[in-house]
Write a protein that binds this DNA or RNA. Sequence first.
DNA 1: TCCCTGCGGGAAAGGGCTTTCTCTGCGGTA
DNA 2: TACCGCAGAGAAAGCCCTTTCCCGCAGGGA
Lengths: 357, 357
Amino acid sequence: MATLSDVARRAGVSPATASRVINGSSKPVTDELRERVLAAVAELQYVPNAHAQLLARSHRSAVGVIVHDVSDPYFAEITRGLQRVATDQGRLLMICNSYRDPDRELEYVELLRGHQVAALILAGSGYHDEAFTRQLNEKLAAYEATGGRVAVIGRHEHSGDAVMPDNRAGGYLAGRELCGLGHRAIGVVAGPRILTTTTDRLAGLRQALTEQGRELPERRIRYAEFDRDGGAEATARLLDADPELTAIVALNDSMAIGALATLRARGLAVPQQTSVVGFDDMPIARDVTPALTTVRLPLVDMGARAMSLVLDAGAPAPRIEVLPAELVRRDTAGPVPPSVRATAGSTPRARRGEATM
Amino acid sequence: MATLSDVARRAGVSPATASRVINGSSKPVTDELRERVLAAVAELQYVPNAHAQLLARSHRSAVGVIVHDVSDPYFAEITRGLQRVATDQGRLLMICNSYRDPDRELEYVELLRGHQVAALILAGSGYHDEAFTRQLNEKLAAYEATGGRVAVIGRHEHSGDAVMPDNRAGGYLAGRELCGLGHRAIGVVAGPRILTTTTDRLAGLRQALTEQGRELPERRIRYAEFDRDGGAEATARLLDADPELTAIVALNDSMAIGALATLRARGLAVPQQTSVVGFDDMPIARDVTPALTTVRLPLVDMGARAMSLVLDAGAPAPRIEVLPAELVRRDTAGPVPPSVRATAGSTPRARRGEATM
DNA sequence: TCCCTGCGGGAAAGGGCTTTCTCTGCGGTA
DNA sequence: TACCGCAGAGAAAGCCCTTTCCCGCAGGGA
């Protein structure tokens, strides 16, 4: 690899001058020398060593991002928002996937700190895990103590800047919608119970049902991975235990798609026999058939705001922005089937006979 | 930020000893000193400066990856394969999204070179653009000249290691399938024509049709962005121009999903009235309704192989691995409608009357 | 007793760049 | 003519680590 001194030597100037030309320093350099340096750069295919630059320069510019998985549409959308603002401000992003592994999350905080990022953004659900939360907060505090900025997206446990989707209100919206359609036997396909996102959404849902004089017993909840297969599998378990279910709330859209698959496999028509409500409104939600009724979260915006927060050097006080959830009515949620309404609570056998799986 | 000397001073040892303890050097250090160093590290929350480390160490370990867009399922799958192998070998990945912008691609090659990556992987279609191709190859050659390794996925233009999905054979498979089902009026929803992937897939398709004594006139091809909306829009244009179409080949699954959306909006039943074949077999393909018939590419495997190639220091000769495409029959491709078969070439009005849009 | 060996530790030389400080030489003013 | 100031270039001091080289010391063999 050609170095700066190679370039300088070839151009017959000092490394200092070469550096000034290459970086467009404010210090003036005569055109003659400038030409020679530029020519040398081209001839040697010189590219500055980024590590040496970062080491020599004082100011840090990259921003670190920790998400569960960028290829998950939920995070892909958030990342899009992060990127947009970062690019506008000429910042480079370093994105790390924790794959929902708390230890990996901790490691990545260190790694990014080691890479001297100017700020750190943690996106994705927090964990119900005291020990982990304490460790994470210690690490973040240490980072902040050295001038690093931190913002979280959708996490309660951190004391600083945060962008919070209103998961609870979203759960409430889903519950109210289904109650309004007459459903009483509602099952829930939930993500891992260790995630705060799961419990928040669940809490809102439960509140809506309670307000309507209904309830949400644990036997109507199944916890599984927050993805398509988790949703499919949880739905199957739910249906096996409770064939009289008329509606299913999936705590994210990936799970809802899994639920739809299981329902289809069992020959249960959506929404005629079983209604489904998802959560997040990822792009694919409108393209499944029937199109998914879901709770929309402004994902791109969440990312954009978090990045703005973290890049806005002022405002030392912790700022918390709560972003509203919104119900998107499409085609998977319909009124409770007449047969069930008429014979409420009785013979679920008839319906079960339809299963093809 | 605490530095290594801070740690050393606090532990009452030299920086050399501190470094040895922290990095688990082979050189022995007494337990006593080791303890003191570790304690100092903990107290100061010391994290080594990654840039300084990278600068001081000679060997480079990270691998750079340039894709069009990680959040696109096509690249998400490939990246999964890349990650798997990289993680196994303890390599860090730096992933950059070019968003199909050739200039950005060039920039990223430089950026990654500057970050001293040990190898570079370019995934995603090449461009029919002489000037760009030459520039890119120059940059890659310069990188390789300094010991860097390069592999491409799905690109012809590079002379070194490559993993090539058999796009042409895949196109052929799609064409043969549709011909076998009796279709004659086949439209194509294609990606940007500047992409080699588009033209390769198209070439295979055309070959299949030609072999069956049919043809693929340009008027039955619409070029658009390689995503859902591009597919929806291209399908609409195709249908407007050619209402008698009985089948549509989308050159990737995202476009196929867009095609499905347009078809649904126009009230055209799939596959009864119009058949659809996609390409890639991304995970969502099985979850749309009807489930998508498509051409599968071993995406994860493609990523894994490319990474293996690039990390396998031996074998200087350029290696090219061609990975086969495979037809996956699901529910969107069916026999040509009887009415059309009977009245081939005549009154398309009847069908057109069904449009609801 | 002397010398050699080997172990544990420190000094110091990079690694490639930025930036401050210093120096030279020129034009302009008194 | 003497001096000041400034433009433009270079010297050199870091930035924070790793690693080689070297040194002192203790133990073992002759």
